[in-house]
Design a protein around this nucleic acid. Structure first.
Lengths: 342, 342
DNA sequence: CATAAAAGTGTAACCGGTTCCACTTAGTTT
DNA sequence: AAACTAAGTGGAACCGGTTACACTTTTATG
């Protein structure tokens, strides 16, 4: 185990001062004779020298690290988001510190402390909804905070990137109504989440526009984790006048819901039409292929990274920025056209 | 945007020296009077002081950061691995820097440079197979390198954590043979990957044990990314005497293969029995539910983190460590029992 | 050819923590 | 009461980079 050479070792071996080596390391920070430069480079090569990021960051804060704080990376939606964010960040020479909260605000608070101590330049997060004081503090500290997918209404000054939750849910519901469904159920995220609420709101609007009765028992909120989605599905199937169509607007619970429907022997779309918020390749492989609401994850990632780096990159556009990208309704075969049964 | 207080600000406000503050910050590093301690803590609270990791890391290397270098996080297998690794690391107070290579060795090399500059204490990686010199160098530098899922044979001194690729593939193939299949195809990873090779080897062993003819046209290697898996599936369907059963031993290509089979109008399991290496919840929701080889991702993650931290944590067990965990063959309904057709 | 401007280099301070060691004070031991 | 130990604290060096500034050497200009 060799010990690491420092900039002074390099300077000595090359017969120059540390200042010169530093200039070679940071082109543009000062003049270096071509001959000197190549000699220094050669020495660095030979010694296997790598500058230490920690030392570098000490002088000025690190615009080189981004925190990505997600609820859960095993959820494919977040996983794809993470993948895109990492790629996008890498393409700008930025590294990503990945942290997860498991939807637990206590864990979230701990992760945020770590990010503060690291002095990351920006944070992209799916907030649990609590820890308001910490989020505020982060902004005071000059950290670029971007909420992605969800937001926190009582923190209006934070940038947000998400799909248009209201519209995506509205259009999915409207599609079902247009196919003749009158009893349309919806399972969305918890009422405490903005996505949960906004999607329900979109649903209500579509129901109203279609002149359909709004039965509260058709509307279910389910936690992101655990069996909540499945339970909601079962409950929905058990009510007096069960729905003939269902919107699953809680991505994390889609497979749970489908599993429950399958176990209940539900025939899609004959007895129940289904639209899910989910864009896994598996949705197309199902029997029947599922009609889905597809979130443009690449756009979400790109905008998030851009905003999270905006202060650093100088272009402090008028905050707060709220970016809503359109989700795409992909029609496949899980929605049946209903006859005029009464 | 407030400017950040430093340890000296705290010291001054509390009327003590920086040494005392540091001792309060690092319990056990020296004596501090109880009264002093609480006063300092109070000041830190009031000032909103957070010690900077970068400064801390400067003195001694950071046993606080792990590099996780994956091919691709949008692949659910890697995503779940990332999730578990992050959780496992967090539970030990370690942060994870996530990087992806997209299976590109050039990108891999760049990411590794970054990790060297950060002086991470350990790296968990799915190596592309190249960049041998860099991997060696990392070990020389004292970084704990752990290959997960795959390995590089010419780097036998690196720790490896993976499933028993040979055995998992052998048992899947044997199951098909036991169901009367004689023409069994396999699509595995590229021949350059250890997983690709080992799984093919397990297949061969099972074929031989069952006394079946080994037809090279039944064996396909497919790249992890792109349409290679689909193409391999099509090719397999097009050969003179097509297989009645197929093992898809390339997790990244499972959905591609299934998509192609679906488009070709293949009826699973009537015309083709299928076993896939994949543990997505979706596999159970398919029609029919797929028989799968399930990798114990939590174990892979736990062992990886443990090894990646082993040097740091002191217990330098005899390297290199090779940990092979058993994969589980979950029988569902995508394998048909063949009649004695000749 | 004298001289100003530009190019190249080195010295030393600085970033914000940690820690060695010297020092003061309080508490024990004979 | 003298001598000794332990507890508590502070000064200053150090980690490995960056950079302001002074200095020397070229090159360009009149």
């Amino acid at each position: 185990m060799q010990k690491q050479p420092t900039i002074r070792d390099v300077a000595q071996a090359a017969g120059v001062s540390v200042a010169v080596v530093s200039r070679v390391l940071n082109p543009g920070s000062g003049p270096v004779a071509a001959a000197t430069r190549s000699r220094v480079n050669e020495v660095m090569q030979n010694l296997g020298y790598h500058p230490r990021t920690a030392a570098r960051e000490l002088k000025y804060g690190p615009p080189t690290t981004l925190g990505l704080l997600l609820a859960d990376v095993s959820n494919p939606f977040f996983a794809r988001l993470a993948d895109q964010v990492v790629q996008e960040a890498h393409s700008r020479g930025i590294q990503v510190l990945l942290m997860t909260t498991q939807e637990d605000d206590q864990l979230e608070s701990e992760r945020l402390s770590t990010l503060i101590e690291r002095r990351v330049s920006g944070i992209i997060a799916t907030p649990t909804g609590n820890n308001l004081a910490i989020w505020k503090k982060l902004q005071d500290l000059g950290t670029d905070v971007v909420f992605v997918d969800r937001s926190i209404p009582s923190l209006p000054e934070v940038d947000v990137v998400s799909i248009d939750n209201f519209e995506s849910s509205r259009s999915a519901t409207a599609l079902l109504a247009a196919h003749g469904h009158r009893r349309i159920g919806i399972i969305s995220g918890p009422a405490s989440s903005t996505t949960g609420r906004d999607r329900i709101a979109g649903y209500r609007q579509a129901m109203e526009a279609a002149g359909l009765e709004q039965d509260e028992s058709l509307i279910r909120h389910a936690a992101f984790r655990g069996p909540a989605g499945g339970d909601a599905a079962s409950a929905l199937l058990g009510i007096e006048n069960p729905p003939t169509a269902l919107v699953v607007a809680n991505t994390a619970q889609v497979t749970e819901v489908l599993r429950r429907l399958s176990h209940a022997g539900i025939d899609i779309p004959r007895t129940l039409s289904v639209i899910v918020f989910e864009d896994s390749p598996w949705t197309e492989l199902m029997t029947p292929p599922l009609t889905i609401v597809r979130q443009p994850i690449d756009l979400l990632a790109r905008h998030s990274v851009q905003l999270a780096l905006s202060n650093t990159q100088g272009k402090a556009s008028g905050k707060p920025n709220v970016i809503r990208v359109a989700a795409e309704l992909v029609e496949r075969s899980s929605v049946a056209r209903l006859q005029f049964s009464k």
